[in-house]
Computed example of a mutant assay.
Amino acid sequence: MSLDIRADAPLPEAVGQFYDRFVALDPEALASNMHYGYWESPDDRRSLEAAGDQLTDLLARKLELGPGRRVLDLGCGVGGPAIRLARTTGAEVVGITISHEQSRVGQALVEKEGMADLVTVAHGDAMELSYPAGSFDAVMALEAIEHMPDRRTVLSNIARVLRPSGRVALTDFFERAPVPAHKKQAVDDYFTKFMMTWVGQIDAYPGIVRDAGLRLCSLSDISEQTIRRTFQQMPRSVEDRSRKQMDDRNSSEMDQLGAAATGLVDVWELGYLLLVAERPGQ
């Protein structure tokens, strides 16, 4: 299975509408930006939220960020990771999301957190980046590229807006092994509910990175540190949030999303990768 454009991929507008609805479902807990977690070892007892911060920090280290650096955060949600990047590294972060509601709420969150001097959240489409060439020192795509119908186009756009020697760090799903028939429905349900495109093999990425005009720095399988414990904790986190903050109708919709994650706890064949690449030059 390749990483080319998928006939069954959701359109960007549909993904935006899904996240518009997600904002409406969960209006009080947006700052947490529920992301996948990263646990360094089986003994790491961090919560899902803390492990999600750790994954953000890992990408920041890979991007070699610091004061004076300008970062594009593709698929930034309501800006939680972007704010964390700016606070921990001193870098300027421009976040874009395909969701109008996320961009509205995200910019309000930035201002509430007193980070407007370093962070901007705006509406934008990674398939059609409008920034001039060489606008950014780094690009982060944390749990974003799987929503986009054509990874080749996204990576080519990233290469264009990066300055020479600029880096990109992204996460993506991939197929560690063929998913057996009795598990495939659970995987399909999850990808459908969360508006994601289906995955290919990790070996497809080096060629796509090269064709985009980037140089591969590292490509890591971080499944053992991320997947299973995220799917174990995500339904409980969703349930806690929905019971505290939502009416019965919205709570039921959120519970359905949590249940979709539960079905993937034992699907070890579904993997999670971390890719780092750079634009050649000095």
Rank of each mutant, 00 (worst) to 15 (best):
A181I: 03
L170C: 07
R160A: 14
M148D: 07
T171V: 05
E143G: 13
D172T: 03
I222G: 13
D211V: 01
D221I: 06
A177V: 08
I227W: 12
Y190G: 07
I227Q: 12
A186N: 11
R236G: 15
G134W: 05
M140A: 14
E239P: 05
P149M: 05
Y205P: 01
Y131F: 10
H147F: 05
G213D: 00
P164Q: 00
M246N: 15
K244T: 12
M196N: 10
G258C: 06
S237T: 05
R249Y: 11
G134R: 02
R228C: 14
R215E: 13
Q245D: 15
M196D: 02
P178W: 01
D189W: 04
E224C: 14
E175S: 12
V238A: 14
G213H: 03
I227E: 13
D248T: 08
A138W: 06
M195V: 04
N250M: 11
F174D: 00
P180C: 02
I158R: 02
F136T: 11
A141L: 11
Q201L: 08
I145K: 07
L216W: 10
H182W: 10
Q256P: 08
L216A: 15
D137W: 07
Q185V: 05
F136A: 12
E239S: 11
R241V: 15
G200D: 01
K184Q: 09
A159W: 07
S251Q: 07
Y190D: 03
F191P: 03
E224L: 15
P164K: 00
E239T: 09
P235H: 00
A212R: 05
S135R: 04
K184W: 05
M140Q: 09
P164D: 01
F191I: 02
P235G: 00
E224A: 15
S218V: 06
G134Y: 04
H182F: 13
I222Y: 05
G213S: 02
L155D: 02
P178R: 02
D137Q: 09
A204G: 14
Q232A: 13
F136N: 10
L155H: 04
S156M: 06
S252T: 03
A204T: 03
